[in-house]
Write a protein that binds this DNA or RNA. Sequence first.
DNA 1: CCGAAACGAGAGCACTGCTCTTGCATTGTC
DNA 2: GACAATGCAAGAGCAGTGCTCTCGTTTCGG
Lengths: 239, 239
Amino acid sequence: MLSFRYTVLMNAPKTARERARAELTAEILAAARRQLAESGSALLSLRSVARELGMASSAVYRYFASRDDLLTALIVQAYTEIGEAAENADLPGAAPEERWLAVWRAVREWSLAHRHEYALIFGTPVPGYVAPHITVEVAGRMPLTLARICADAKGAGSLNPPSGPVCPPEAIEPAMLQMLAGESFEPDEVARLILAWNRLVGIIGYELHGHLQNVTADDALFFDHTARSEGADLGLPFR
Amino acid sequence: MLSFRYTVLMNAPKTARERARAELTAEILAAARRQLAESGSALLSLRSVARELGMASSAVYRYFASRDDLLTALIVQAYTEIGEAAENADLPGAAPEERWLAVWRAVREWSLAHRHEYALIFGTPVPGYVAPHITVEVAGRMPLTLARICADAKGAGSLNPPSGPVCPPEAIEPAMLQMLAGESFEPDEVARLILAWNRLVGIIGYELHGHLQNVTADDALFFDHTARSEGADLGLPFR
DNA sequence: CCGAAACGAGAGCACTGCTCTTGCATTGTC
DNA sequence: GACAATGCAAGAGCAGTGCTCTCGTTTCGG
């Protein structure tokens, strides 16, 4: 299962060699991260990472089997960070509208500050690259934060979706319903959650990729309105 | 303005040389298009296009100044096609809900059949690449088709947006309001149009990039619901 | 008809991911 | 402690890329 070399980062190194290996792996990852943040994934090369660390390019292959492997590590990192940004912005005690807006803003802030990392996880997949199974769990942290806010609101009786077309239940994956069963969501509410998650990612993508140029005048203001509008669609008490 | 070499395609060739040039330009573009559809833009190389046409790679540079130039031509082509797909699916005489759903479905169909072309125009921008001014006009055809349907519905008095958070007018670019002034949209209606356009692109992107795997069970069904739901948000008479 | 412009082909540069071999250092075991 | 096994770094090398430059050839317009 966990066949990736960088998993040694998580285990406690014992011998000096293992410690050196873990450190070097982390250094390579850090350098790659730096270059990714600077120039994007397309311009990230194993050779330039090796140059930055003063080692031969072939030596890097001892730590990451391929460029895709290095990219996978960066993808996991990005998913983790955006998930943590969402979770840290959430204040479980506050009103659901405030929590909703805070999480949306935090995700946008992180994305604006890490546009290349955002592109890595939500942009066009690299051709030939298939996401390993590792990424699915960590990818769920951000959308699950949104779901938790709605679940809390529903528990408090303050989730009242407006009328409108109802999503046919068979359109949703049963496993998805099962996973959110603890929150006792209706299929239509799950559909609204999926759309809200899609909206959050999509509107940030539009802003980052320049599709809102000459369209919106105040991106932050428009984003806030989008967050409120989408929250209202879910039934959160936005007026 | 029109400084791109492939514009000769539009002009009537006179001499034999000009005719040959126009033909070869079209052939290069066609071969590039074929390779793009097959493997995606990342794997599209000028050299392989040259190989396919049996010419030296350096010769291709007589027709396209750079790889980015070739990509720009493909981007214009993709924007044109998706715009035409939307326009052709629209039946100005029919009911607005039918028109809306037909256009949404046509855009999805085109995108599923041309995933790499979709990625080229709505995916992560190629690093270092900046969209030339040519692309902005042709990029508007698809969203304008959506706007026209709403304008017709509004003219017929059948556009009644549900209550909810209202977009502050200063969030929208005045030029955008100006462009749609002929349809006499309110700023909030323009905001809803922007969001609908963003939704259409975003939900297709989610489907194409695999973000709906294990989330939705019937993508076509979920897409139809999304179209209806978004149309209802705009005030179209979806029940 | 002749000079100028356009053109195709080839060599070459700097870069990429990745593999293989070679030699050295570290490790665990008699 | 000696020794084999393993881990590791470095270099050369392969096939591919975008792009440039040069060098003959072809074509066009005055």
